[in-house]
Amino acid sequence: MFEARLVHGNLLKKVLDAIKDLLTEASWDCADSGIQLQAMDNSHVSLVSVNLRAEGFDKYRCDRNLIMGMDLTSMSKILKCSASDDIITMKAQDNADTVSFIFESPSQEKVSDYQMKLMNLDQDHLGIPETEYACVIKMPSGEFARICRDLSNFGENIVIACSKEGVKFSAAGDIGTANVKLAQTSSVDKEEDAVVIDMQEPVTLTFACRYLNMFTKATPLSPQVSLSMHPDVPLVVEYAIGEIGQIQYFLAPKIGD
């Protein structure tokens, strides 16, 4: 028996919004410790990793490890049937070929039950090595989304250069060039407005705008985003999922000239 109940059901809807443009189908690995998803996009350029801790749920039970392969478009359609303040429960029997989504209104006066067929997915699992990143940039997630959107008008790539002066985002194309520089903030009223740069050595890497823009679909999950960079290693873009976990996007840098 698997059962996971989330009073802040809205978080699950936001997680789906954050992955459904990048992934069409994926497996949710359910274990005693929580729920994880790891999948590459269709082009195998990026990797998405979602981690939802068991203790973050209001009720969590997983008697046996369970892999639930899901069509994420279908899962998203079902979650769209819930209201933003609904309590969401996911439920499956051991060895079941369906999963149930139960939506309860806060007053408990409306309860909806949706069942979805599970899929057998044969997906490659990748090992992500422990890395001490040369630069870790923490910044407002809305600002990052804005920069990615704005610079996408100039070219298909964004160059991210992190140095002790700050972080510079650049793009170049037919219409001209664009540069956005952010310095570390000295003092802010709200912690979520801060730009914090932890740099061991300067790093400059180039990334495809298309993927960065898809990662920013996670912006509603968290007011802050962290970007971890290291020479010749994939970028990690990480958003917290409320108090219950995090979503990480890994993107291979563009190489050569």
Partner: peptide, 14 residues
């Protein structure tokens, strides 16, 4: 132009 490698070039299956 720069080339786009796949993510599996960096992360081994496991």
């Amino acid at each position: 132009a720069k080339k786009q490698p796949t993510i599996s070039k960096f992360f081994a299956p496991g």
